[in-house]
Nucleic acid binder design. Structure first.
Lengths: 255, 255
DNA sequence: TGTTACCAGATGTCTGACAACTTGTAAAGT
DNA sequence: ACTTTACAAGTTGTCAGACATCTGGTAACA
């Protein structure tokens, strides 16, 4: 069996499934996540409202081309969040208004940099709180994961490769260490909205930006491990300042 | 409507479900719920803490005598509430302190209120920032809208009507006055999630809560109009404290 | 010594099957 | 004409087994 090193990951080059992955490396999302997004789209398009019944599990699984277990995992997640109510022998019913996420950064608010800056603005509020808590609450195991995440980020950035996924993994460790996973979930949503708006025309990472902010990432990492909340807040502020700079530069050089 | 005397009690015989409920009220729990309670017991007994790894799915399913799918449904539910983190290829890890229900409170209610408190926690971070900015940035026209929104809220609460929509409209005015609408967008999403989870079975407002917090709403309103950011922050904190109290009361009185 | 290759264990997904429940409807009975 | 019963179709709940995919550690190799 042949293995090849790509993006710092061992990849099986014998099965062409993995080759396909090379062509579209953005599909890192889990099947369940994709199903959830597809469901949101379906609900919006079909105009379903509170109380309406969703199609059966078998119908959904056939239509989306995934197993019934996967559909069930997605729907059960939603029931846990109170978005749907499942009745055995009857069906699954909407119990809340489900809005497609595109509202965050939709069509008209993407007026160049303005929308991006607003997103970063909200993100800063959340990130500051998260790193403060992470510095206080992180367990030893979590600190270890944060450290190794940073090491991975450093090597990827140094090699000039796409670092967004690695960066996101690094920050996810911090969100988890904060003690309230909902912060992380919202920030990741904001991040998705940000990149969807930013990379509309050129969907590639900026290598230079990675080099610039990797230093601050190191400070952030050390501050959390050392339990220094205020230093962590300073570090994340610097990182977000770099993001703001990036947006400004982009809006200046771009047309 | 037919009534029949059974065991010296008048019972509605139109639906024999009620009779069956009298005979076996213990079998109402689903397998998944039993699994969740068993897991809570195991975690408490084993003394697992945040960051610790749970036994594998196969081990749990064998030990509890249920299928692996059932275990997965339970654990996925927990992940949705942010109580555990599942890592593919690695394992399932605790991300919150899970305590067994005591006294009359059901395990389900305990876990649910835990999730609600996390939502309010995130919301507090955002709301504090929003009202601070609103107090600083609000224009005269926006202050006027906030004032009239509060007047409407006062009359609706006093009349004992459903006040949720009016309350949401009042807060929306504040979100807009903050100068960054994305804050409001996210808070409204959180509000939806909160109500969907909280009012899963009884979709009604609590009139008493409205009366209690309308005073703080007045303080918030005046502080923003006066441009006093710190007073506004204090007022919104009191409002959110009331929400937390409400959750606590619910999980104590619930059977 | 450091890289590589491999292995065990864990979660993710799919398939097929059956159980349990709900609901509507047609048949049977009065 | 009305009520009761029985049944069928549709839906979610649970189980078993299999394979895919990922993670972390270990042993072999250069």
């Amino acid at each position: 069996m042949h293995k090849t090193k790509i993006n710092n990951e061992l990849i099986d080059t014998d099965s062409y499934k993995d080759v396909a992955k090379l062509l579209s490396p953005l599909r890192a999302k889990s099947r369940t996540q994709e199903v959830l997004e597809a469901l949101v789209g379906m609900i919006a398009e079909a105009g379903l409202e509170i109380g309406d019944q969703l199609p059966g599990e078998t119908v959904l699984s056939e239509q989306l081309g995934v197993g019934r277990s996967t559909i069930r995992e997605a729907l059960n997640r939603w029931e846990g969040l109170g978005l749907v109510k499942r009745r055995r022998g009857s069906g699954t019913y909407l119990t809340a208004n489900i809005r497609p996420a595109r509202g965050l950064v939709s069509t008209e608010t993407t007026l160049e940099s303005e929308g991006l800056l607003r997103i970063v603005d909200v993100r800063r509020t959340l990130e500051v709180e998260v790193v403060r808590r992470a510095a206080i609450n992180a367990t030893e195991a979590q600190k270890q994961r944060i450290l190794s995440g940073f090491e991975k980020l450093k090597t990827v950035v140094a090699s000039g490769m796409m670092w967004r996924n690695v960066d996101q993994a690094f920050h996810t460790e911090i969100y988890e260490a904060s003690g309230n996973a909902i912060f992380g979930r919202i920030i990741l949503d904001l991040d998705d909205a940000y990149h969807a708006a930013k990379f509309r025309d050129s969907p590639f990472d900026n290598p230079e930006f990675g080099v610039r902010s990797v230093l601050a990432h190191g400070d952030l990492c050390n501050a959390i491990v050392a339990g220094d909340a205020e230093a962590a807040v300073r570090a994340i502020s610097i990182i977000l300042d770099h993001v703001v700079d990036e947006i400004r530069e982009m809006s200046e050089t771009d047309k």
